[in-house]
Structures are given as C-alpha cells and as structure tokens.
C-alpha cells in the first residue's frame, strides 16, 4: 500500500522480518491519518538500525550522531515550536549512549514524540548486549552472559515525571498503532518503547517470545494513577503493554515555557537593533 510519506528511490537496509519494517509502516500510517503536514514535521534520529527509519519517510529529517537525537530535537522544537518533532532511535542509541539526554529531556518536558525501538540487542554493531538485554544474554562480548541489571526505561521515565509513558509490541500492530497515535496527540513529552525482534542477532527475544511475555492492559487499567503505573513499570514477566501512564493535566511544556505560548519561529525574528544600542549605551 502506498503512502503519502513514502520516500522515493530509497534502499532499505533492514533484514527480512525485521521489526523496524513494521514500525516504519506504522509511523507512515499515523502521520497520514493524523494529517500531519510533511513540510512542518521533523524526525530526528541518532545512529543504529532503528535510526535509519527517517531516511525512508518523506518528511524533514536530521540524522545526527549516536545518542544525540534528543538534544537536537529539543532545540528544533525550541527554535520553532510550531513544528511536529519526533526523536527516534534504538535502545542502545536512546538508553545507552544518549542516557543522560533521555533523563534531561524528560525533565524538560519537551513537546516531542520519543520513539524507541527496543530489540534488546545491538544490531548495527552486530550482536552485542544493549542496555535492555536481559541478564544471562550471551553475546560475542558478554561471553559469560549479561551480568548487568537491564535498564528499565518506563520506570526511569516515570520517576522523572514523564507525562506520557507507554510500551507496545510491534507484533501487535493494531494495538501499537493506537498507542502511538495517542503519543502523537499527547501535549508534552511522550515516550513510546516499542518491543521489536531482531531476527538476525537476537534469537531469544523473537516475535513469539514477545507475544508470550507480554499482555495488553485492559480497559479497567487507570493510566492516570501514578503509583499504579510505577508498579506496572516494574512488571516483567509478562510485560504490560499500552499507555502505562498519562498526565492529562496540561503541564508546562519546555518550548512554551521558554518561548511563550504564541512564540514565532526564531528564523522569522531578528533583534531590534535600537534596543541593543540602548542597552550598550546604558553602560
């Protein structure tokens, strides 16, 4: 099926059966359904297999360095709050190399959608452990199996009072789409951790494994209950899927706090020289 957001003449670099393919399709569908204007939306990505996604979506993009999508996305939103900004990358990109930015972007409550492809392994560098790899996962580097505690993005995000915290499994595309859509519609920072298999380098966490080890939160779950959400964030087998927490209280968002509510894009503004002159003359 063709989409408005298909980019022409691209050479998709992912393996057959890769979870990224599903995520790519999902994002294009949502952008189209939400009638997002491709001219005023930007996807910023770091480095990794997941970070290649924006190269295949016909919109503005900035492909930056490993781990650095968030500060770049933050400043783009600050420079022009009218843009729809998405930061996208994998678990190593966002939770490993960019861990510090992850923490502080949540604290800022920047109005961006933060999409993390979580396949619990490093694909681009061919199979090392990622911050989310389960204990005991054997790789060419972690020869005796991973000994570190896996990173818990949901719990970290919640502890920093993220306004929208969610997890989906790309194996359940229909549910994933629903949640990702609400991430786009959330006012403020929205995290969506997407579980996806890497058929080449992660033989443990497969489509089947994800299906067996996760469940969709039912309608009775109250996503506005912070303490309940914190408990859910620590559930592992099986992992809860859906919007774990959403703060609908219209909290202040970063770019509006700094730039004001009706801020014009900075490219359309220049300083009043007479003001600079007055400030200088007052010295």
């Amino acid at each position: 099926m063709s989409s408005l957001f298909d980019r022409e003449n691209v050479d998709v670099a992912w393996c057959h059966g890769c979870g990224n393919l599903g995520i790519l399709k999902l994002i294009k569908e949502i952008l189209e359904e939400l009638e997002v204007d491709k001219k005023t939306s930007v996807i910023v990505s770091g480095i990794g297999q997941a970070a290649k996604t924006p190269y295949y979506i016909d919109t503005n993009m900035f492909g930056v360095l490993h781990g650095r999508a968030l500060p770049v996305a933050t400043a783009i939103k600050l420079g022009n709050p009218n843009l729809c900004v998405v930061a996208e990358g994998g678990d190593g990109d966002m939770y490993g190399e960019g861990g510090n930015h992850f923490i502080h972007t949540i604290r800022r409550n920047v109005g961006i959608v933060h999409i993390v492809h979580n396949n619990m392994v490093y694909g681009l560098t061919k199979g090392q452990a990622s911050p989310t790899s389960p204990k005991g996962f054997v790789t060419k580097v972690q020869v005796g199996g991973v000994v570190n505690e896996p990173f818990n993005p949901l719990a970290v995000a919640l502890s920093l009072k993220a306004g929208f915290v969610s997890r989906v499994n790309i194996g359940d595309a229909k549910h994933a789409k629903e949640v990702l859509k609400s991430a786009f519609l959330h006012h403020g920072y929205a995290l969506i951790d997407i579980l996806q298999p890497c058929p080449t380098f992660n033989k443990t966490n497969t489509y089947h494994w994800f299906k067996e080890n996760s469940y969709v939160l039912n309608d009775s779950y109250d996503s506005s209950d912070f303490v309940g959400a914190l408990q859910k964030a620590f559930e592992f087998s099986p992992m809860p899927l859906g919007v774990i927490y959403q703060d609908k209280s219209n909290r202040d968002i970063f770019e509006r706090s700094i730039r004001g509510v009706d801020a014009k894009p900075l490219h359309a503004m220049s300083h009043d020289v007479s003001k600079i002159q007055d400030l200088f003359n007052s010295l």
Partner: peptide, 22 residues
Amino acid sequence: VEQSEDEIASLHMVLGGWYSGA
C-alpha cells in the same frame, strides 16, 4: 536560553537550533 545537561548536549542543541532557523 537553556542550560544543558552537559557540553555534548550544548553543541548538539546549537545544531538543532540552526537547523530550525535560529
């Protein structure tokens, strides 16, 4: 004006800023 979490973020933010026209 934003105080960044580290200098890595500082300069990346500068690049994001210019990209958006600041």
